[in-house]
Design a binder for these strands. Structure first.
Lengths: 339, 339
DNA sequence: TTTAATTAAAAAATCGATTTAGCAATATAA
DNA sequence: TTATATTGCTAAATCGATTTTTTAATTAAA
């Protein structure tokens, strides 16, 4: 690492004044501390000339603030999270924060390690997509009034801010959309994990089916498998349950893998099988036939989360009443759900 | 931020010894500094009990090492970079490094700011996808022997390590593939930017065309436009140059936007238009017809880059001879290029 | 027996900032 | 004229580590 040329001390000795004075001036406390204007000007000019920048570690050490946020997502290479990361980034830099990211792969142990890492580092705020059962590891943060916001899912027993979409209603609407379009044997495909967003979606689906006197048909794909295995599993599901006439995919990657499975089985969408999937992407939009999607408002999610977090940081009051912020999805009807 | 419960000083006073001794023991210098084994054990036991973790800012301040890497990509929401970020992340954490990321949007000024940010922060290493003309801003880093690696593209006048694929050859092969499959009026679609990887791809394409006595047909899409505008621009190109019988898309997002444009114009692939695109993704694989892709070895790119960077960091010798590391792409023939 | 070397640990300096407490010098009030 | 405020600035403490320099107590060598 390149050594810093100028420290506050160097400036002070160069100008034959004390570093206290320099520090006050640099921190905009000149008025308050009654530093004379000529001296202020002189210091600022000099600082500008030598291109001084404060050592952020010394600052952090002294102030306890790091200007770093910790972003913990399930997988940064998942387009949904990648876009969130991108949007959060913009606003964070605008507000003077840097971002350290990590991907949990929905692994509790990994998540715990990352939490510890963030904590050791002393991040000023946490944006977290929690794995199931992470409550007890996050609780200490909540108890110590850390600035924290959960993303995409929540943990019921924790009093925190969280941002997510109205998953149950969205799934309900998606299911209703299929029913209205004439499908009856509609299956909901989810993953074998207790992530709250997935259980909510399942609940919404089941409610819609029940409300229309239809039998819910839930199928689970194991979580930890790789893509190829997931496709195989989906093919198996379709083979063993030929009565299914439509599918509601509970997530992005399930929809993608599902399309691949359907294609490999030479089934026709929407003739053989109606399809609606959570999340939207290039594939769903451009595919022939195009795929009906329940699109999450990614920008809005990101902005809500980061703005809320920065609010938390700036209001060091404890009057923050924690609550969930629910955003709405948009059902984008496309060819795959038109019988 | 929660205050750290135990500092090295607390441990020292708790055990009635000096913090020097504690520090030596914690840093594995007990032998070297002749600390007695009983004391070593006692300290380690105590440290374990109270769950002490060092303040990383104090450490960084003192040692000048930050254990943070700066990752600067064009756009973290671009699947190509998102996957790279994911792969780099794994290895970085394994080696004890954290990652701060940022997206340049191929904007030189933004890039400069991010470089400064990384520098101020004192990152231990840089992984950078440079915008054109960023040489003079990166040069100081190179001169000061910073640990640095360029990704996806390089800057000719700089002596640095860089990792990229053999773009010219890949484009040559992609073009040859189309020619061999009977296409003649093959257009190369690129963006209006001097990114080295794009100019290399163009060069390879032109060479292939010339070698087969065909006239190169290069079309540029303006860079800064949003997706919808790009699609419109691509439609305009196809409309004004109806003689084109195949397209080689120079990048991921051009291919995606291109497919959308082609679809909107109701052109048939591959009958009306053969298609090959750089990079691979779900859409290209699953689309009907599937799209022939020039796939970059993303894992290999990421691993090479991060491993090389960590090597740089660990070998504080200046014997590092900088050089380019070129990896090979894989042409994945699919339906879109079979006439 | 005195000197030198070794062992074991501690004191103090340092990294680069922020912040509290305080000190002269001047101005104002009593 | 003396007491009190105000002005303008600085010394020193502090954050939590690492590292150089010292010290004190033994042990070995002369």
């Amino acid at each position: 690492m390149k050594k810093q040329k100028f420290s506050i001390k160097d400036i002070a000795t160069s100008l034959n004044i004390s570093k206290t004075t320099v520090s006050f001036i640099l921190n905009g406390k000149a008025k308050e501390k009654r530093i004379s204007q000529p001296l202020v000007d002189k210091v600022l000019k000099f600082v500008e000339e030598v291109g001084y920048t404060p050592n952020q570690f010394a600052q952090s050490l002294r102030t306890g603030k790091t200007k770093i946020l910790g972003l913990m997502v399930e997988d940064i290479s998942n387009p949904f999270f990648a876009q969130i990361a991108r949007n959060i980034e913009d606003r964070a830099y605008e507000a003077g924060y840097k971002i350290i990211y990590c991907s949990t792969e929905n692994d509790k142990e990994k998540s715990k390690e990352f939490l510890q890492m963030f904590q050791r580092l002393g991040v000023d705020g946490y944006i977290i997509t929690p794995t199931p059962e992470l409550e007890e590891d996050i609780r200490p943060l909540v108890d110590s009034k850390a600035n924290l916001i959960l993303l995409d899912r929540n943990l019921n027993s924790l009093e925190t801010d969280y941002v997510m979409v109205n998953n149950a209603e969205s799934a309900y609407e998606g299911t209703k959309h299929l029913i209205r379009n004439g499908f009856r044997k509609i299956s909901f495909i989810t993953i074998s994990s207790n992530q709250t967003q997935m259980t909510e979606r399942k609940r919404g689906y089941e409610e819609a089916m029940n409300d229309h006197a239809l039998q819910p048909l839930v199928h689970e794909v194991s979580f930890k498998k790789n893509y190829t295995d997931s496709v195989a599993e989906l093919k198996a599901i379709l083979n063993t349950a030929p009565e299914i006439d439509a599918i509601l995919f509970g997530a992005n990657y399930l929809g993608v893998a599902g399309l691949e499975a359907i294609s490999e089985l030479n089934m026709k969408i929407p003739e053989d099988l109606g399809v609606v999937s959570f999340d939207d992407n290039d594939l769903f939009r451009i595919n022939k036939p195009s795929i009906t999607a329940i699109a999450q408002p990614i920008e809005q999610i990101s902005e809500t989360a980061i703005n809320r977090l920065i609010d938390q940081i700036n209001s060091d009051q404890q009057d923050k009443n924690k609550n969930g912020l629910f955003l709405s999805t948009t059902l984008i009807p496309r060819e795959s759900s038109q019988k």
